[in-house]
Amino acid sequence: MLYLDPAVPKDCGTSFYRQSLPGGRLGGNVVQAPHDNLVDALGTRFVVPDAFEEDVRVPHRYSRLLLCNANLVHSATGYSGTTLEEKRMTAVFFWMT
């Protein structure tokens, strides 16, 4: 991910999540083969709101390049702006190695 907007607040970066397990333990954060995504792995598109807990937060910083495996459970930490010109802008690249 490449953060492209210099005016976006730091709290609009990227967060990585881990599965919440009984007793407050944290589980994994990788979708493993033979599953291609969380829908395949969990068997549903909808999970309870507390199924995952934020583990790592990377703040937005203009021109920052963030590299990670696409199978890590992640999401935008937050969004900003109301018009296309003001909104969080990030370029996402995928490649096979």
Rank of each mutant, 00 (worst) to 15 (best):
M1T: 14
L2Q: 06
L2M: 09
Y3A: 14
Y3L: 11
Y3W: 09
L4N: 01
L4R: 05
L4F: 00
D5E: 06
D5T: 02
P6F: 00
A7D: 06
A7R: 13
A7F: 15
A7E: 12
V8K: 07
V8W: 08
V8N: 06
C12H: 07
C12L: 03
G13S: 06
T14F: 07
T14L: 04
T14H: 05
S15K: 01
S15H: 03
S15C: 05
F16G: 00
F16I: 01
Y17C: 00
R18I: 01
R18A: 00
S20P: 06
L21V: 11
L21P: 09
L21H: 04
L21C: 10
G23R: 07
G23W: 07
G24C: 12
G24P: 15
G24E: 10
R25Q: 13
R25P: 01
R25W: 15
R25L: 10
L26W: 07
L26V: 05
G28L: 01
G28W: 00
N29R: 02
N29L: 06
N29M: 05
N29S: 14
N29P: 11
V30A: 12
Q32A: 11
Q32W: 14
P34C: 10
P34E: 03
H35T: 09
D36H: 05
N37Y: 04
N37E: 08
L38I: 08
L38F: 05
V39S: 08
V39Y: 07
V39I: 15
D40P: 04
D40W: 11
A41T: 07
L42K: 11
G43D: 14
G43C: 12
T44I: 15
T44V: 12
T44M: 15
R45S: 15
F46I: 10
V48T: 12
V48K: 15
V48L: 11
D50I: 10
D50Y: 10
D50A: 12
A51G: 08
A51Q: 06
F52C: 11
F52T: 08
E53Y: 02
V56R: 13
V56Y: 15
V56G: 06
V56E: 08
V58K: 07
P59M: 07
P59Y: 04
H60L: 12
Y62V: 01
Y62K: 04
S63A: 12
S63T: 13
R64E: 13
R64M: 06
R64T: 14
L65K: 15
L65F: 08
L66C: 14
L66P: 08
C68H: 11
N69M: 12
A70M: 11
N71M: 09
L72G: 00
V73F: 02
H74Q: 03
H74W: 02
S75M: 00
G78D: 09
Y79V: 13
S80P: 01
G81H: 13
T82K: 14
T82R: 06
T83V: 05
L84W: 01
E85M: 12
E85S: 03
E85W: 04
E86Q: 12
K87E: 06
K87H: 03
R88H: 00
M89Q: 09
M89S: 10
M89Y: 01
T90A: 13
A91Q: 14
V92E: 01
V92Q: 05
F93C: 09
F94A: 02
M96G: 15
T97R: 04
